[in-house]
Amino acid sequence: MLNLNHTLFPVFCGCNETDVPLMLYAADAPCTEYSNITTLGTDFDNSQISLLWNNTLTLYSQDNNQLAANWTTCITCGAIQCSLGRLGMEISDVCKQCFEKHCWHGEVNDSQPGFLSPSLILDPSETWAEWNVSFFGSTD
C-alpha cells in the first residue's frame, strides 16, 4: 500500500470482479491537517474538531476535485457499479475511465517501503512539529 501510494490517495478495490463488493480504501491521509492523532484522553475544542472534519471532507472530495479531476463522479460510479451489474447494464465511459485510473488492478510492489512520514498534501511546507504547535499549542 505504501509503495503504490495508496496511503495518500483513495483507491477502489474489486472493480473488475463480479462476485465481490466494490470497496473504497481511503487512509487517513494528511490533506489539510495531520489528522492521524489519538483522541483518547484529549479534549478537542470545536475549532480543532472542525479542522479534523475538514481534512476528512478534503480527502473524500479530493479537495473538491482539485487533487483528482472528476473524483466525486468516480465516487458516484462506485456507488452504482454493483447495482448496474446486477441489472445487466453496462457502466458509462466516464465510470470506465474512473475505474481505470482509480482502481487497484492487482499490481504489487514488494520492495521494502521507506518510513511513512507524509507532509500535508495541500501545504507540504508545514511540518508536523509546526502543525502540532498550531493545533495543540505545544510540541508534546
Rank of each mutant, 00 (worst) to 15 (best):
S111Q: 10
P118K: 02
W53R: 15
T76Q: 12
D93I: 03
F115E: 14
S47I: 07
T72F: 07
L67P: 03
C77K: 04
K101D: 10
N65L: 12
N55M: 07
F99P: 03
I75S: 01
A79T: 07
L67F: 02
A129D: 15
I91A: 00
H102P: 00
C82Q: 11
H102Q: 13
S92R: 01
L87H: 09
Q66R: 13
K101G: 01
R86A: 04
C95Y: 00
I37G: 04
M89L: 13
H102R: 15
N36S: 08
T39P: 02
Y34D: 02
Q97P: 02
E107A: 11
C98H: 05
A69I: 12
L51C: 05
E130R: 13
H105N: 12
W71Y: 09
G106N: 06
K101W: 01
F115S: 10
L120D: 12
S125F: 11
S47P: 01
W128R: 07
M89V: 12
P124N: 10
N64M: 09
I37A: 05
Q81K: 14
N36P: 01
E126Q: 15
T73S: 11
W104H: 15
S92N: 02
L84D: 09
L67T: 06
V108G: 04
Q48N: 12
N65Y: 05
Q48D: 13
N55W: 07
C103R: 06
L57D: 09
T42E: 14
C74A: 12
L40I: 12
E33Q: 14
T58W: 00
E100R: 11
T42A: 06
G41L: 11
A68T: 06
W128A: 09
E126V: 15
S119I: 01
T73A: 08
D43N: 12
R86F: 15
D123C: 01
L87P: 06
C98P: 04
C77A: 05
T38V: 07
N70T: 03
W131S: 09
P118C: 04
L122G: 10
W53Y: 14
V94S: 11
S35F: 04
N54R: 09
D93Y: 00
N109V: 02
K101H: 03
E100P: 00
S111E: 13
N109G: 09
F99Q: 02
S111D: 14
V108F: 04
V94G: 00
